[in-house]
Each structure stands twice: as C-alpha cells, then as structure tokens.
Amino acid sequence: MNIVEFTALVWAGSVIAGLLGSLTGLGGGVVLVPLLTLFFKVDIRYAVGASLVSVIATSSGAAAAYVKEGFSNIRIGMFLEIATTIGALLGAFLATRVSGSVIATIFGLVLLYSAYLAGRPRVRHAFDDIPDPLATHLKMNGSFPEAKGMRHYCVHRVPAGFSLMFGAGALSGLLGIGSGAVKVLAMDQAMRIPFKVSTTTSNFMIGVTAAASAGVYLNRGYIDPGLAMPVMLGVLAGSLVGTRILVKAETKWLRLVFSAIILLLGGQMLYNGLAGRI
C-alpha cells in the first residue's frame, strides 16, 4: 500500500468513526485506536497520538456550538480541569513508560466497560436545590434554559467528582481518548449536575484535557503528521455531519449497534494485548 491509498482509507475510516462517535455521543476515539491498530496494523503509540489530536478537533468544534446555548457551566468545567489536566499529564507520562501490550490491554478493558455503560439503561439522578457548602463556596451552582424558563440546580460531592475527573484525565492521556463517558459519570452521577449540563460541560473539558497530554505526546514523537492528518480531517468531517443529522437519527438503535461494535473491538484489543501481539 502506498501513502495515497493508505491516507484515503484511514480518512474514510475516520469519517465513519467521527460520524458514529457524534451520533452516539461516545466520541470517535474509542473506535479509532482499535481501527488503526487492528486493521491498519499501526503501532499503538502512533494510533494513540493521532486519536488524541482528533479528540481536540471534535471537542473544540462541538464546544463552539454548545457554549452559545447556555447549558455548559464554565466554572464547574474550569475547576474540574485542574484534576483532568494533572491526570492527563500523568497518563501521558505513563504511556511513554509502559509497553504497547499494556496500553492495548487497558484499552480493551475500557472498551468493554464502555459497551456495558452504553448498553445499560440510564439511571438519571434527580437534581435538587439544596445547597452544598463547598460547591456554594466554589460558586458552582447554576441554572440552565428549559421549556418553562430557567431552571436552577445545586452541585454536590465536589471531592468525589474531582477524584473521578483525575481518573478520567489519566485514561485520556494514557489511551488517547476523550473519556467523555467517565466525565459525564462524574458530573451526572457523583455531583448530581443535570444531564444536559454534564454532557455539554464534559465536551468543553475534553479539548483542554487532551491538550494537556498532546504536548507530552508531541515532545516524545508520538504524533506523526502523515497519520494524524487523515485521522483529524476525517473525524472532524464525520462529526460535523453527525451533529447535523443528530435530530433525525434513531439514537437508541444506533447506540445498540455502536455498543456491539465496541464490545467486539474491546475483546479483540484485550486478546491481542494479553497475547502480546500489539
């Protein structure tokens, strides 16, 4: 295969990954790295570097649209970014210390867990108006637009959310994914922030988190322009199309298909990682 053919195929695969990622809200990174390593036989370190770059592109592109709607809470996001960026930095340093097989094994486990999360019916915690002293001191409580008007909410369990965010950052730095699912888990389940505010704020944070590990990746030579170029342009195009057709698509059916794909890829990554083939 020459470079033109390779670039065209990786671009097409990235468009599909970006499209599926934005339609299901799970992000393109989780399918990209398995796609590049399992099908294109790319070394996992190059794959993780390229994926991380595409994560920044989609997060920043989508956040530009979300911030104007008034759902995302920049104070919650900025405070928690202290945890995600430190985690991302450590995750990226860890990635440069361990072998590709270890990264592939952890990746496989994360994929299997994501498939489980995506397939499970979502339990939504009710948010409330009872203030928590720490969250109030940190000025995190906010309001968001609803059909009936502005709705106020109070944030809870800041230390638990902060710790989970550190973990989300470390996974992002180690695996080159946005780890939006863990971020939403931390905000929606632990801190009891309304779901819509959690998802949009998470999207806002993903780009900054990824930038924290991207610097380390760049300095260590993990970001290859020839590979990152079709991945970034493809994922960006796919996610832009995805957000346009999001309203019409049957997301429940799509999420099911996507979790089946993730389950398969997760098993493959785990097997290859444990067998030392990656």
Partner: peptide, 16 residues
Amino acid sequence: IQLGLLLLIATPVARV
C-alpha cells in the same frame, strides 16, 4: 501538517 496540528493543540490553550 505538524504546524496545523500544533495550532489545533494551541486552541484550547488559548481558550484557557
């Protein structure tokens, strides 16, 4: 290409 990727990484940094 690498310069473009560097600009992309710099975008969230500029935002912060």
